[in-house]
């Protein structure tokens, strides 16, 4: 019933700028899982429909909605209900050097 190849969408890198306004990290580098079909992959691999009242990011496997972002004049609405979770790469935390802990 659908012919995605004829439709106008961008890849998930189109989310980088809009999400940078909200998050301190680049969320397009995060790994996510689609609630609907279980496909895993980077946010950058989503199909983003932007000629709309908001950004609608769909799963490349099943076309269901994974993420929606609406930017109003004073607020943004972010809907992640189509995402099981996001694995967000972060800098490694400091490794204890033993000077602050250990047997007294």
């Amino acid at each position: 019933m659908t012919e995605p190849a004829q439709d106008s969408y961008q890849d998930g890198n189109a989310l980088a700028g809009p999400l940078r306004e909200i998050f301190a990290v680049d969320v397009t580098a995060a790994g996510g899982q689609c609630v609907h079909c279980g496909l895993t992959g980077p946010v950058a691999s989503l199909r983003v429909y932007g000629h709309a009242p908001g950004l609608v990011a769909r799963c490349p496997g099943c076309d269901e909605v994974v993420l929606r972002l609406v930017r109003g004049p004073e607020s943004a609405w972010l809907d992640l209900r189509g995402t099981v979770s996001l694995r967000i790469p972060l800098p490694a935390q400091g490794v204890p050097d033993g000077s602050e802990a250990g047997p007294a």
Binding site: M1, T2, E3, D7, H51, P53, V56, D63
Partner: peptide, 12 residues
């Protein structure tokens, strides 16, 4: 007539 769409165009 601008075309706005939030997903693939259904063909029914």
């Amino acid at each position: 007539f601008p075309v706005l769409s939030a997903g693939p165009t259904p063909r029914v």
